[in-house]
Amino acid sequence: MLRAALAALLLWAAPARAEIDAAETAARAAEMLEQAGFALLEAEGARDRVEALTQTVRAYEEGLLALREGMRQAALREQTILLVFEAERDRLGRLLGVLQTIEQAPAPLLLMHPEGALGTARSGMILSDVTPAVAEEARALRTQLQELATLRALQDGALTQLSAALERAQDARTQLSQAIADRRMLPENFIRDEAAMADLIGSVDSLDALAALLAADPPEAAPDLPDFAGARGTLDLPVLGTVLRRFGEADAAGVTRPGLVLATRPRALVTAPWPATVRYGGPLLDYGNVIILEPEGGYLLVLAGLGTLYAAAGDIVAADGPLGLMPGDPGGDSEELIVAAPQSGGGGLTETLYMELRAAGAPVDPADWFTATGRD
């Protein structure tokens, strides 16, 4: 029984990979955030400040994502240790009592036994068999206590770094918005007719209807863009986040949509996954702000649910060019300091971006085109 109990605890107390993973993730995040800080300084004198600041904002978002993951891993491991301590409290207390008794007992008494030499020999054999296991368990316990202290220090340091990084990320977003406002727009590939666009928007009653009308009325002068069809399966998602609902998957109300719903953080940067012409940019019904890109003739990429818009109809955007920010309070990033339930890696993903891809006027599954969508 004793050996079985010791073996079980030793398995639990083995060197914790979780602590190593959390420390490595936090170290990687610290390096990413430091590089983002340098990029923000360099963006001040960059020739194309919009491009430099776009890369800086995304670098901050990736660094913050890694830092939160390190904190989540540390919180999970700390919770595991505390749960085991709670479950083993009585037995660990008895173990500590035994170790203290052995340590305090005079050496001659440890060698004496009331049954004489034979009893002394037998007790010596038992003690020699049990003592290494008890000592090993004590070392394992000490290791776990040290790990717990390390994890708490790691989380304290990460919270401090997270607070500072959130402020710098918000500063980078503000600078990006200003740089886009100050930028002289490139020549448009077709002339905007704002009155005609307003009439068009007033005549549609759904996102599907708008996309269908745009597909049926391509611009007269199409720009020379790279082969979008050949990029199938290689595109990056337009925003850092996770897939909440897939193509044709019903939501809680039983409603299905022919696109992906991505869960993101407030004020997350949305970028163009491929060079494209902006066919529409603005509010639409209850979809929030909508951007419709045409990466190639016959294809439309619809992004709905944005907050701030950086692009408008007629613009030509480059790959990874900034399209806008997700909704969110500009001063509300402090709420992100709160680490959600450690069992959930989705804490803070409170905004949703709807993404729909259309080919020849019909919706197709975007998961076939984009990486990081969990497509098998």
Rank of each mutant, 00 (worst) to 15 (best):
A5G: 15
G361M: 04
R192Y: 04
A367M: 03
Q35K: 08
E188T: 14
R58M: 07
A36Q: 02
R192E: 08
I292C: 01
T25F: 00
G202L: 04
A179S: 04
S128A: 15
M112K: 12
E136I: 00
Y310H: 02
L145C: 10
Y354G: 00
D171C: 09
T101Q: 15
R17F: 08
A74C: 06
W12I: 10
G321P: 00
G307K: 00
D227H: 08
P266Y: 05
G346Q: 15
L214T: 06
P266L: 06
R192D: 08
L186C: 04
G331S: 11
G288K: 03
A216C: 11
R279T: 06
E19K: 01
L325Y: 04
L159G: 04
G346D: 13
Q146G: 15
T373S: 06
L240T: 02
T371N: 07
R358L: 08
D205G: 14
P15V: 04
L210G: 02
A318R: 13
M112F: 14
G93E: 12
A75N: 04
A222S: 15
P238H: 06
Q104G: 07
V270F: 02
P226K: 04
V239A: 09
R72E: 03
R68A: 02
D315K: 05
W369E: 01
A319Y: 01
G119P: 07
S163A: 14
T101V: 15
V270Q: 00
A30I: 05
E61T: 01
A172Y: 01
T264P: 01
G361S: 05
E78Q: 11
G321W: 06
D329F: 05
P114T: 03
A87I: 08
